[in-house]
Design a protein around this nucleic acid. Structure first.
Lengths: 140, 140
DNA sequence: TATTGTTATACTCTATAACTATA
DNA sequence: TATAGTTATAGAGTATAACAATA
């Protein structure tokens, strides 16, 4: 691996660490773990089957049961039955859950401060480069 | 938050997730967890006090005990006493541990494939932008 | 007294496997 | 028979508090 690529990988590693720290800290303010905050954000958009949540988290469905349990215990989410298929349970944020999710999103300093150091032109350049790193062939 | 910044934050989130998946998968090939792989990389550079490892991981020192225990059980790391201060224990990778760390570093597909899609000029641009995001004031 | 590392404990996340209720 | 969600279990990471050895 050439030194330049190694340097970029190192920077990405640092950013990953920073991102997690800030995310977990922001979640902790609301008495949530990182995983709980992530799921709360997911179900704030609308009802979502447990199975789909597991897919988005890339974890086993059995784990989602406990995470929703804990969100439900805090009154931030609830389960509903899917009328179309009674095997399915839909998890959805309550009003309080949506409020928490909104405040959590706004409190992500990571988003505000470091990116504020870049001009709009630079942010656009960063966006385009990240897009290509994440998805090497957008239209190939 | 303006839409452009939100988009960049979203992309960073995606990259963070991708990075973790690839890192954990690469570690699993060597029967290591992500945390174990990270510590192995740290102690591959030379002996390091348990305390310092905890600082680098930003976790409590008590957690490092178990992680080093598990690396030691696999013969990848060992503890030494610090002659200068007998309270201190230095963790260091064994020969096998250094080999594993090297192969692990080389197997990080995340580094190779996505970044290969960028030209050297673009990688340099990405490096400079990430540097400024990570450390908003390098010389201010 | 203060510091280093460890132990003990509790909680959360994770995967696996077995179970239930529905389809 | 297959699928959705749950329960049970075990391993790992994490924080907290109490502890032994050393400074």
């Amino acid at each position: 691996m050439d030194p330049l690529t190694a340097e970029v990988v190192d920077l990405i590693g640092t950013m990953v660490q920073r991102f997690h720290q800030e995310y977990d800290a922001a979640a902790a303010v609301h008495h949530l773990t990182g995983a709980q905050a992530r799921v709360l954000a997911l179900v704030s958009g609308g009802p979502m089957p447990m199975r789909r949540i597991a897919e988005r988290l890339k974890c086993e469905p059995s784990n989602v049961t406990g995470i929703i349990d804990r969100l439900e215990a805090q009154g931030l989410a609830e389960r509903r039955s899917d009328p179309a298929d009674r095997r399915v349970k839909l998890a959805v944020a309550t009003g309080a859950g949506r409020d928490t999710a909104t405040r959590l999103r706004e409190s992500l300093d990571f988003a505000r401060e470091p990116l504020a150091a870049l001009s709009e032109h630079e942010r656009r350049a960063l966006r385009d480069l990240l897009k290509r790193v994440i998805d090497p062939r957008p239209a190939d």
